[in-house]
Amino acid sequence: MPKASELREQEIAQRVLRRWHDDVPNDRLAHLVKDATRVFLRALQHRLSQHDVQLGHWTFLRILWERDGITKRELSIEAGVMEPTTFAALQAMEALGYVTLERRPTNRKNIYVFLTPLGKRLRKTLVPLAEEVNAVAVQHLAAEDVATTRRALLVMIDNLTRDQQGIEQA
Rank of each mutant, 00 (worst) to 15 (best):
Ala143Phe: 04
Lys3Arg: 09
Glu9Asp: 10
Arg8Val: 00
Thr37Tyr: 10
Phe60Asp: 05
Tyr98Lys: 00
Glu66Phe: 02
Asn107Cys: 04
Thr149Trp: 00
Asp158Thr: 15
Glu132Cys: 02
Glu83Val: 07
Ala152Arg: 15
Leu101Asp: 05
Thr59Val: 11
Met156Ile: 09
Ala30Phe: 09
Glu102Ala: 08
Lys34Ile: 11
Ala143Trp: 06
Arg42Thr: 00
Gly56Pro: 03
Leu115Gln: 00
His57Thr: 06
Gln14His: 11
Lys124His: 13
Leu61Cys: 02
Ala147Arg: 14
Leu32Pro: 03
Glu74Gln: 14
Leu101Trp: 09
Ile70Phe: 03
Arg15Leu: 13
Arg15Met: 09
Phe114Trp: 12
Thr86Ile: 09
Lys120Met: 04
Val127Gly: 01
Gly56Met: 03
Trp65Asn: 14
Leu48Pro: 01
Leu32Lys: 14
Ala43Asn: 15
Gly166Ile: 05
Leu129Tyr: 06
Phe40Trp: 13
Asp23Cys: 13
Glu83Asp: 04
Gln50Val: 01
Gly80Ala: 01
Phe60Lys: 15
Leu32Cys: 10
Met156Asn: 07
Leu44Phe: 04
Asn134Lys: 12
Pro2Leu: 07
Phe40Pro: 04
Val53Tyr: 02
Leu122Glu: 01
Asp145Arg: 07
Gln91Trp: 00
Val136Ile: 14
Ile157Arg: 11
Gln54Asn: 10
Arg151Ile: 10
Glu94Met: 10
Ile167Tyr: 15
Leu61Trp: 04
His140Tyr: 13
Ala43Ser: 15
Leu96Met: 11
Lys3Gly: 04
Leu115Lys: 01
Ala170Trp: 09
Glu74Pro: 00
Thr106Ser: 11
His57Cys: 00
Phe40His: 13
Val127His: 06
Val133Ala: 13
Thr100Val: 14
Glu168Pro: 09
Tyr112Met: 00
Phe40Ser: 12
Asn110Leu: 11
Leu41Ala: 11
Glu11Asn: 10
Arg8Asp: 02
Ala143Ile: 13
Met156Pro: 02
Thr161Ile: 08
Val136Asp: 15
His46Ser: 05
Glu83Ile: 05
Ala13Gly: 00
Leu141Trp: 15
Gly56Asn: 07
Asp27Val: 15
Val133Phe: 15
Ala152Tyr: 06
Trp20Cys: 05
Pro2Arg: 13
Val155Lys: 11
Asn159Cys: 06
Phe60Ile: 08
Asp68His: 03
Arg104Cys: 04
Ala147Phe: 04
Gln169Asp: 08
Gln10Asn: 04
Leu75Thr: 02
Gln14Val: 09
Thr71Val: 03
Leu153Pro: 05
Val39Thr: 12
Val33Pro: 00
Phe40Ile: 02
Asp52Ile: 03
Pro84Glu: 01
Lys120Thr: 07
Met82Glu: 07
Leu17Gln: 11
Leu17Asp: 03
Thr161Glu: 08
Glu131Met: 12
Leu32Thr: 09
Gln50Lys: 15
His46Val: 04
Glu132Ile: 02
Asn26Ala: 10
Asp22Arg: 14
Pro2Trp: 07
